[in-house]
Simulated assay, not measured.
Amino acid sequence: MRFLGIESSCDETGVALVQLLPDGAARLRGAALHSQVAMHRDYGGVVPELASRDHIRRVLPLMEAALEEAGVDLRAVDAVAYTRGPGLAGALLVGAGVAAALAMALGVPALGVHHLEGHLLSPFLSADPPAFPFVALLVSGGHTQLMRVDGVGRYALLGETIDDAAGEAFDKSAKLLGLGYPGGPALSRLAQQGDPAAFALPRPLLHSGDLDFSFAGLKTAVLTQVRKLGPALAARRADLAAATEAAIVDVLVHKAAQAMRATGLQRLVVAGGVGANQRLRAQLDERARRAGWRVHYPELALCTDNGAMIALAAAMRWQAGGWPPHGDGWAFDVRPRWPLQALTPAAPA
């Protein structure tokens, strides 16, 4: 079966075609992505109305590009998947509306996918896919969670952030350092030139004994250092960026290792935009080497929001019996707030 996936939850428009092979494996056949970063940069963040309008302009040309890369005619698509939530309501409605209209025109199912489930399952498209069960570290701009994953839709929350997510900590700290938007990648690039030990920044909840996270206090500590430095910030910006990145990564690695010990599992999956951070990957790989477990990452191109992860999640749920033959029908809604653990299993345990 061929699944067309449409992602429009925030500031990326992504369309991709994923095919289920006879042996049960999934293969990415074609993908196209447009980022709205340049459009939102002048505003210092995502403007929801502008995001929605840009999705409308981009989605059909991107679909044509993805199908052309795949060498597949639109009429050969067997199901159309879209991001149902969470995300910006207006942006979600664009993808949902286009997907339902396409599905109705083609006479195929329309499938509403959870955005975070897409991220969580995206490593199954990598060259080194995981196997169930595993611990998942979901780290993105708005989410930081540790989950136990026993199958498609079988998710147990182990811990989550009680305030800012790791991606927000990167972005807000970058803004304090005057790095502009989007701040996280800019901070990580600058951190490569700095000394991570130059500033003693806190590691919130590092030894709390649970698997929850907190990054708001770290942002406050960065603000305090910026004010102390004053005009000297320009000369110390790289060091402060490196120290900030190190603090965030130390907490993520410590909590992930704690979750591995608590569950006794041997596989960790890292997904979401922050999963592309090279310091995080290096430290997790080293911790895994010492502890004897494995870490699986999506390909770098699949760390950001994209259509491939939506098509894949739909394909895996379909394969596991997660939808009736008609899918969700052609009526649609969106869920801007939608807890991942609220999803039902795709098949009986």
Rank of each mutant, 00 (worst) to 15 (best):
F3W: 09
I6N: 02
L17V: 15
Q19L: 13
L28S: 09
G30R: 08
A31Q: 14
Q36V: 12
Y43G: 01
G45L: 12
R53D: 01
V59W: 07
L62M: 02
E69D: 13
V77S: 08
A81E: 13
T83R: 00
G85F: 06
G85E: 01
P86V: 08
L92P: 08
A101M: 04
A101I: 00
A103F: 01
A105H: 10
L106F: 09
L111S: 07
H114V: 08
F124Y: 10
M147C: 14
R154C: 07
A156S: 13
A165C: 08
A165G: 13
A166G: 07
F170L: 14
L176Q: 14
L177W: 02
G180Q: 06
P185N: 05
G194W: 11
D195P: 06
R203E: 06
D212T: 11
F213E: 07
A216M: 05
G217P: 10
K219N: 04
K219H: 09
Q225D: 05
R236W: 05
R236Q: 15
E245V: 10
A276Y: 04
Q278R: 15
V295C: 14
L312I: 12
W323G: 00
W323L: 15
D328Q: 05
D333H: 13
V334M: 00
P336M: 13
A347S: 14
A347M: 04
